[in-house]
Amino acid sequence: MVFTPKYRRKVIYNQRRKDIGEILRTLCRYKGVEIIEGHLMSDHVHMLVMIPPKLSVSSFMGYLKGKFALMIFDRHANLKYKYGNRHFWAEGYYVSTVGLNDQTVAKYIREQE
């Protein structure tokens, strides 16, 4: 999965980077989603996850992006002024399924700069 902050603002760094990673791990754990590999770039997120079959990808992404926005604005109230109406993430995301090549995808994510 790849998704970006609204307007591709470079907010995923320093103190917020730690909070962003923690929130993403917490939300995935709540839904029983296993994070195999993940990397926070300065303006987007790469994640290789294993989503349970009972959960659709689109409903999980809606949950992840929606709940994440609420949690990050609770922790960092000053972000509300940059991202009006509590919209932290841009619309849309990229998702691709992997099977036999999951090791290749994990390596790609791990080696991101």
Rank of each mutant, 00 (worst) to 15 (best):
84 G>T: 10
99 G>D: 13
28 C>A: 13
55 L>S: 10
66 G>Q: 10
17 R>N: 07
103 Q>W: 02
57 V>P: 05
4 T>F: 00
86 R>I: 13
111 E>C: 04
43 D>W: 04
42 S>E: 15
84 G>Q: 15
79 L>Y: 03
14 N>V: 04
55 L>C: 11
80 K>W: 01
89 W>Y: 09
73 F>G: 07
54 K>D: 06
51 I>V: 15
5 P>V: 01
24 L>H: 01
51 I>D: 11
8 R>W: 09
71 M>V: 06
94 Y>M: 13
70 L>D: 08
26 T>N: 02
70 L>W: 03
8 R>Q: 10
85 N>K: 14
34 E>V: 10
36 I>T: 08
27 L>D: 01
78 N>T: 05
1 M>W: 00
49 V>L: 14
67 K>T: 08
110 R>A: 14
16 R>M: 12
29 R>Y: 01
95 V>K: 05
5 P>Y: 02
6 K>W: 00
11 V>T: 07
101 N>Q: 12
51 I>Y: 05
6 K>I: 02
107 K>V: 08
25 R>M: 09
71 M>Q: 11
64 L>H: 03
91 E>Y: 06
79 L>P: 02
98 V>K: 06
27 L>P: 01
18 K>Q: 12
31 K>T: 04
55 L>K: 11
59 S>H: 12
103 Q>P: 00
89 W>I: 14
76 H>F: 05
45 V>Q: 05
24 L>V: 01
106 A>G: 06
33 V>F: 01
110 R>L: 12
75 R>Q: 07
49 V>A: 13
38 G>Y: 15
7 Y>K: 11
14 N>T: 06
37 E>L: 06
79 L>E: 02
106 A>R: 15
10 K>L: 03
2 V>K: 01
34 E>F: 03
43 D>K: 07
102 D>H: 14
99 G>S: 14
38 G>F: 12
60 F>C: 13
24 L>D: 00
107 K>S: 12
31 K>I: 08
105 V>E: 03
71 M>Y: 04
61 M>I: 15
110 R>G: 03
72 I>R: 02
44 H>G: 09
38 G>R: 10
56 S>Y: 02
34 E>Q: 15
3 F>V: 04
